[in-house]
Amino acid sequence: MMNKVAVILWKDLLTEIRSKEMVFSMLVFSLMVAVIFNFSFPPGSDFIQDAAPGILWMTFIFASLLGMNRTFVYEVDKGCMQGLMLAPIDRIVIYISKLLVNFIFITLVELIALPLFGIFFKLDVLTSPGQLALVMLVSTLGFTIIGTLFSAIAVNTKTREVMLPILHFPVSIPVIICAVQATTAIFQEQAWSVVWGWTKIVIFFDVIFFIVAFWTFEFILEE
């Protein structure tokens, strides 16, 4: 099964390298949001540092929604989805490969945007890189698990681009809360137990919704 996942992954990476559609638009969007958020505070305000983790995650989640909207659009528009569905692979292979594709692209954008955020907001983002890496990993995984599932739904609705955030936001609230709080704790150099308290909820979220997505994805693709 995993080698079929790799086949689709290879195809999607190659397509993205050629078109640069998803990563490039997510990246530009993230940077613009970072700059615009800066204008919503009085110049030189210290408050911006307290709000930074929230702004960081809001930016990431908005950017990822922008990217994840594309997950199935180019498959559906060219009829390729039918090609994938005709292939002798389980439906879940399609889900897992798309999940990985989204995860890789979003993580890439986060890794580029994070140091720039640090510069813009005069923030030391590398106080404890290991903890931050863990929080980013599980949180990004959390909203890609949900986002990949919902983008397969959204692509078949009348208002594709609008539907994904409407479905995604209320469900991913636990990830948003916990990611922001954990990141705040890390930036304020609080104890590991505080960070872990938040992180474990996200891990719980990831596990539960991976199971739910695993079970329900085939119902979405069916005709």
Binding site: L149, I173, I177, F209, T216, F219
Partner: peptide, 22 residues
């Protein structure tokens, strides 16, 4: 689609509550 979303939404409730509580 609604069935899938209904299931996801319901499963989400306890996790939302957990995180809001904390």
């Amino acid at each position: 689609f609604c069935a899938v979303f209904g299931i996801v939404g319901f499963v989400d409730v306890p996790i939302v509550y957990m995180s809001i509580r904390l």
